[in-house]
Design a protein around this nucleic acid. Sequence first.
RNA 1: AGGGGCGUAGCUCAGUGGUAGAGCAGCGGCCUUUUAAGCCGAAGGUCGUGGGUUCGAUCCCCACCGCCCCUACCA
Length: 521
Amino acid sequence: MEFEPRDQLLQRQKKLEEIAGLGFDPYPHRFAWKQTAQEIVSAYEQKSAAELQETNVNVSVAGRILTIRLHGKAGFAHIQGQGQKLQIYVKLDAVGAAAFQLFQLLDMGDVIGVSGHLFRTKTNELTVWVEKLTLLTKALLPLPEKWHGLADVEMRYRRRYLDLIANERVRHIFVQRAAIIRYIREFFDARGYLEVETPMMHPILGGATARPFITHHNTFDVDFYMRIAPELYLKRLIVGGIDRVYEINRNFRNEGVDAIHTPEFTMLEFYEAYSDYRDLMKLTEELFARLVKDVSGGMKIKYGEHELDFSHFESLSMREAICKFWPANAGNAPSIDELSTSQGPRSIAERYNNFARGKRLDLIRDLDKSSSGELTGALFEAVAEAHLIQPTFIYDFPTDISPLSKCRKDDPSVTERFELFVEGMELANGFSELNDPADQERRFRAQVETGGAEVPKEVDWDYIRALAHGMPPTAGEGVGIDRLIMLLTDSNSIREVILFPTLRPQKDSDIDAAAASEETK
RNA sequence: AGGGGCGUAGCUCAGUGGUAGAGCAGCGGCCUUUUAAGCCGAAGGUCGUGGGUUCGAUCCCCACCGCCCCUACCA
């Protein structure tokens, strides 16, 4: 072991030997606790000093020492178990000479168990009057600073264990994350959905447009793609008669990393037979409203500077959104009719680019190479997306950017597809699933011809075959769980809601030193 | 990928073209109801790495490494 701070490590190793020398086991195997700190606090925090004295509540509780205040022949400490802090009072007279000697050798970070009774101090803090003190684990490295906690963002992510000990909010976020996901499961289970797990390693790319991670299977001697979406497998299950199905699991996309993107992220995907995208919009509104209520108690949540109101969801077609948020001074505002013509989006994009050049905004690129559907999508992103702060459904996505969605009967240039935006962030994407195998084959072929790293190299014939066996009319949706949790926990980065976010692997001094000591063995 | 910012003691942070400081943690001592405990004492640093400018660089310049923010791609 060659960790920093070297002097404190050595000091603690010395104490460890002293403790062992006194006959105490520094790493015992178990501790017969009777209560958690949480149980003690919730049961007795309302009890007065007199009540505690009368009932003489005996407790046995374990936790990590966060602070120590030694006063000669007595001392206070706070221990923390399951996120709950609890003060203990250790007095020479009460624990005896040997245990007090042990107490004096303890450091912040050590894990201990204490038995005794509850009382209140002069300042009325609920405290354990320790009668028996047991060391449960000696910590050889110190905790971060007790008042400011751990602030260095990089170290918070790399050594999440310290972040969790030092920063209460971090623990709370992951408790909430678990509760939110549990709630989602209950929501779908109650509606007759079956939760499944489908492959993470795919022989053919599909279900989304994204650059994949590629891995290799030795025995088969073939490459697999880490999945970018479970979509095509879940729809095979719809063909197989699992009429309501969902999966909550990781997707992997080999793309940019920023506040709302990370290479592995958690996605909820769900599919229900005999419904269409309108049904899913209703379901989505209900799910989100319930989650918000569960977390906040009301229909509103605070996110950064904004107050987000989930009691009402705005709803706009993509073309409407472009018209609505068309910037002033950007020339003639487009109309729905103009956007619906075959050359409309192109001339509108030109108008936008002329405006953007003057404002030094980013241009819509590849005007000549793009289809009118692609340009409509690009216009939406350029003009409207950032304005969608309050919960807003955008629907009627262009067909050529929606290869898995059903077209509208009255307008084949758009599909029965929607996305939910909050805080300018895409949170959900759902549509009436394309179930015409011939149409699906045409669109897959078109994709393969287009080419590109984010597009499948071959047609997924087994998926087409599944559709040929008949997939009932079905609606399906994906929800970015991490982003949802960002919103519900008022977190400004996706890395705040992922326990061990993907970071560049480190060559830190600790690792180097450890490696060095490995070599010298 | 482009632009901006940051990197100083184990942690949280000051600071300066003349080789560096505080608080906490750690160490020695005092203290039997403290709570960011207190008091006394001592210790702790190749100022991210490598170049350059300079009599002299932690500070100015360049490159690199890492992280953060914004923009672009993407969910």
